[in-house]
Design a protein around this nucleic acid. Structure first.
Lengths: 184, 184
DNA sequence: ATCCGACGATAACAATTGTTAAGATGTGAA
DNA sequence: TTCACATCTTAACAATTGTTATCGTCGGAT
């Protein structure tokens, strides 16, 4: 959806040349860090291909709390908006093709295309909603049920993401996840 | 803060009489249900005195996930805004004095006082923020640390709320909470 | 005053999950 | 190829937390 918007912007007959150069395309290998805890997020990334994860370091433990796939936009929102150090790391899980939009570019475009800002607001609500659902699932469900739900609602995560990331996302150890998968 | 706004609205020299009657004051005893799971939320409550909790039923288990005290506004926001059945119950924990504003009243006032709508939006962000914090604390901390944090950041909850509600808020059993409190 | 229900503590036991360690497999780089 | 590394599984054991049940206290209602 967001991807569509970007494509449309880039084709805009009037501003095509002017705006097109605001976007930078890039390819990154697996495990490439795009944003580091403590740094200020200056970019929004649109995923053309591949996938990314948002994670943070908790006493040396790597905790993933959101995955992003094709046609999604990603940013450490609070950091990007308020220009303050990010609490989170953003990293590629697969070799990925990304479209990068800087804060400056975002502001220029945002003035011409209100949809872009609306889209960003929705991105924020989406993230909030993600928190709410993760929270409620941790309250209501035990790890096995959380896993079963994930298989049902996000099979692409099961298919594409290494298990230890999924484990931390579910709030359990990789060992425990392995038990759940195999003692069915 | 919200309470202040309400008081100001009620004192508005121009609209005083017209608007004052939109508010209904009421007193409720302990354990009075103000909103029931499945019903549509038609009111916002401003707490003048006492405290309330938002909870839901999970397989027969009563799970509290937010407490509200004096000078706060409460509503099952999604239900109130979209007029759809509430997922949650709203109940008093202490005898409480409340100011009630209906949806109709809210809309009339909202048209005259944009602050009211802004305030409601903030209420929503606050709720989202609450989700995020609860979620992160469940990931990062074990029950003992969550309890210690609660003591530090919300001593009023420890003081005023019965332990079994606190236990469900922390995601543990009352027995486990009792162990934490006494095996210090 | 007495009874009842809400609240909290504790014990004994069960179940779940984490920890540590070892090994199997596969992939990419030197 | 060979080595290093990432990924996943399994086992044995420890730690945490839940379950069930009992008991004591307190306060309000009759």
């Amino acid at each position: 959806m967001y991807q569509d918007l970007i494509e449309r912007l880039k084709q805009d007959p009037v501003n095509r040349d002017k705006f097109k150069k605001l976007f930078r395309e890039t390819e990154v290998p697996t495990k490439k860090t795009l944003l580091c805890e403590g740094d200020i997020s200056n970019n929004i990334y649109f995923i053309k291909k591949g996938c990314l994860r948002l994670w943070f370091n908790n006493d040396g433990k790597d905790i993933t709390f959101q995955f992003f796939f094709e046609n999604n936009a990603v940013s450490s929102i609070e950091s990007f908006l308020e220009e303050k150090p990010s609490q989170f790391n953003l990293e590629s899980i697969e070799p990925s093709k990304l479209v990068v939009l800087s804060r400056a570019g975002f502001e220029i475009l945002g003035n011409h295309y209100p949809e872009l800002k609306e889209g960003f607001f929705k991105l924020m609500l989406n993230r909030m909603n993600n928190y709410a659902n993760l929270f409620l699932s941790r309250i209501k469900d035990n790890p096995r049920k959380r896993y079963d739900e994930l298989v049902k609602t996000h099979p692409e995560i099961i298919r594409r993401i290494p298990q230890h990331y999924i484990a931390s996302y579910l709030g359990i150890t990789p060992i425990s996840l392995s038990r759940i998968r195999n003692k069915k």
